[in-house]
Structures are given as structure tokens and as C-alpha cells.
């Protein structure tokens, strides 16, 4: 039984991780496509509520206006997405990384337009909660 359970945790979960990675990548792709189309409302619908709320407080305007005022990368394609427990990241082929959280309504972006700073150091993000 322990070996069976070990296999469930060790082998079973990565198998279903592929679907979740596709879902996370799709959210990031929709977010950047909405920015390219200058559709702030659609872009904000892909954001984690905490992140959207913090953005509104910082910029002192509605999320749909504030998100378009940031220097976030627009359009492009997602080259890589990885999922761990309820966290994920998605990397654009053109550069820039988004971080996502999984909630009851699926994946939402918690930080976007992130660039690496130094090894083992947090990314520097244009938008984060």
C-alpha cells in the first residue's frame, strides 16, 4: 500500500499537471492578448482579486484603466508554463514572466511583467500583489 500511495503522489499528480499547465498558460495568454487589444476589463478579469485591488489602490483608478497604464508586455505567446500545488508561472516566448494562483474559479494572475534580477532572488514585477 505505501508503494501504491507513493506512486499516486509521485507519478499520478504530474500526469494531471499537464492539463493544469495548459489552463494556466491559457490565462496568461488571454491576459496579454487583452492588453494588446487595449481591453482593460478583459485583462482585469484574468487578475487575482487581491492583485487587482492593490493595483486600483496604488494607481487610484479603476483596474481596467490602471492595468493599461502599466508597462506590461502585450500579445505574444506562452513558451513555458509550470504548476506546483496552487501556484504557477508562465513565461512568454518574447520575454517576461507571469505568476499565477489557483482559486475556486481557476487560475488568476498574481504578478505580471516580471523579469529575473539575480540568481535565487525574486523577480522584479511591473504588477504584483
Amino acid at each position: 500500500m505505501p508503494v501504491l500511495c507513493a506512486c499516486l503522489f509521485a507519478l499520478g499528480l504530474p500526469a494531471c499537471a499537464a492539463d493544469r499547465e495548459r489552463d494556466a498558460a491559457a490565462v496568461a495568454a488571454r491576459f496579454h492578448a487583452a492588453l494588446e487589444a487595449r481591453d482593460g476589463e478583459a485583462a482585469c478579469s484574468e487578475l487575482n482579486p487581491e492583485t487587482a485591488s492593490k493595483l486600483e489602490q496604488q494607481e487610484k483608478k479603476p483596474c481596467e484603466d490602471a492595468v493599461l497604464a502599466l508597462e506590461l508586455p502585450t500579445g505574444g505567446t506562452i513558451a513555458d508554463a509550470r504548476v506546483y500545488v496552487t501556484s504557477a508561472f508562465a513565461q512568454r516566448a518574447e520575454g517576461g514572466t507571469d505568476f499565477l494562483d489557483e482559486g475556486p474559479d481557476g487560475w488568476r494572475i498574481s504578478a505580471a511583467g516580471c523579469e529575473p534580477t539575480a540568481p535565487s532572488q525574486p523577480y522584479d514585477c511591473e504588477l504584483e500583489n
Binding site: 509550470r82 501556484s87 504557477a88 508561472f89 505568476f99 535565487s120 532572488q121 525574486p122
Partner: peptide, 10 residues
């Protein structure tokens, strides 16, 4: 890795 991503790390 979930914690790494929560802190926006690789």
C-alpha cells in the same frame, strides 16, 4: 516550488 513561485522566485 509553490513557495518559490509565491515569492516570485524560480
Amino acid at each position: 516550488n509553490a513557495e518559490q513561485l509565491d515569492h516570485q522566485q524560480d
